[in-house]
């Protein structure tokens, strides 16, 4: 479902002496449907960079990133938009929403984008919010004022609203208590069971051991520094 070959990336800082910083070379990764692959490596080793490249958020310098039948490294913006809407979900660590939109609609939005009727989309959103222990009295409020843990759970609900065939999870269990962590791990296991291909970053080793079928250390993709 996800297949990365010979991927490379460098940042060019035009306003800081045009410094070129190579951050990735020769990256390769394959994730089959129903499989969860955990990315490991020290902070700064490129886990998030790799994930952002799969999502099309960072541009690739070379190589290919196939998600389904689309090569994200070469796709036109609108093909990526379509891919994100229908095929590839992403739970980032930060919730970014239009202020003022009620939580229920924030979670239902990915479904509305797909043309799901409002009632059905809201019902699915309500199910997920209830499961993730977001109190019902908060559903009508904007999540911008919520606590960190609540925002993260709203973000997770939003990421799982549509059954994406491929999912990227960036620290989905960080800052959650034991009960909510359990709910999130359950959601991940269900997604695997229905055949989703998942790439995840987990600092929580217990969670990693439980849901990941394989680990890939991204340190191996860090370019050797030229002397």
């Amino acid at each position: 479902m996800i297949e990365i070959t010979n991927l490379s990336k460098a940042f060019t800082l035009h306003n800081q002496g045009s410094a070129v910083i190579p951050v990735m070379a020769g990256a390769a990764l394959a994730v089959a449907p129903g499989e969860c692959v955990g990315l490991t490596g020290q902070s700064g080793s490129g886990k998030s960079t790799l994930m952002r490249m799969i999502y099309g958020n960072y541009l690739a310098a070379g190589g290919s990133i196939r998600v389904g039948d689309l090569d994200v490294a070469r796709a036109a913006p609108r093909e990526i938009i379509r891919l994100r809407r229908e095929v590839l979900g992403y739970v980032s660590q930060f919730l970014r929403v239009v202020p003022r939109v009620p939580t229920l609609d924030v979670v239902a939005e990915p479904l509305l984008q797909l043309g799901v009727p409002v009632d059905a989309a809201r019902a699915r959103a309500a199910d997920l919010l209830a499961r993730l222990n977001i109190a019902e009295r908060l559903w009508g409020l904007s999540p911008t004022t919520f606590s960190g843990g609540e925002q993260q759970r709203v973000n997770i609900a939003r990421g799982f609203a549509h059954p994406y065939p491929a999912l990227l999870l960036d620290e989905p269990t960080a800052s959650l208590d034991a009960a909510n962590r359990e709910v999130v791990l359950g959601l991940i296991e269900e997604a695997k069971a229905r055949g989703a291909a998942i790439v995840g970053i987990f600092h929580d080793e217990g969670a990693r051991d439980r849901v990941c079928d394989r680990l890939v250390d991204v340190t191996g993709f860090t370019p050797r520094l030229a002397a």
Partner: peptide
Amino acid sequence: QGLTDQVLDDPQHGYTQLLVS
């Protein structure tokens, strides 16, 4: 030009980098 979040998070041109930063 490109995908909005890509241009803002990984700007390629010096001017865009300046604008975003």
